[in-house]
Amino acid sequence: MKKSVIITIMVIYILAIVVVGFIGIRLKVYNEQKYVEKIECISDGYKNYDSTTTTGASKIEAGYVGYIRADYQTGLKVEIKCRITPDNATNKKLEYIVDDKPSIYQLTTNSDGTATIEFFKGGVATVIIRATDSKQTQIKIEISAFDWSIIE
């Protein structure tokens, strides 16, 4: 075949790859990512702080949204379950952040997205629950295990 014909075919070939590469690709919907807007704790025993009460108002001012109060007993495990709004958020993974106090409690994240705190002693844990997408919505809750045996 003549040289010019071969060169033309090669050019068309390269164009074919380039054109499909530019026009044909499915756009990754980075723009359409749905961020986690709101996190609500729905664990058993969870209560929202009431901004009308003094305690509630001061806690809310400090950034807390609610608390879980449990009575300490050996092997107490408190489960932290959260509901995410909107429901079809792109990245529903949450991270749970606590201060490290290994003598009092231990936080483990479960595979289904919830977390469990195991208390070894009575104490208070401040948990920050944060979404892992770029918007990083977060809430702060308090989990206290009250050891009545100290009082007695």
């Binding site: 068309i12 074919a16 054109v19 499909v20 590469g21 044909g24 690709i25 499915r26």
Partner: peptide
């Protein structure tokens, strides 16, 4: 190697037949 949408699939057919 490319992840294509419908238009891309059509273009793939066309360019293949052309080439």
């Amino acid at each position: 190697a490319m992840d294509t949408r419908t238009l891309g699939d059509l273009l793939i057919y066309t360019f293949n037949i052309l080439l």
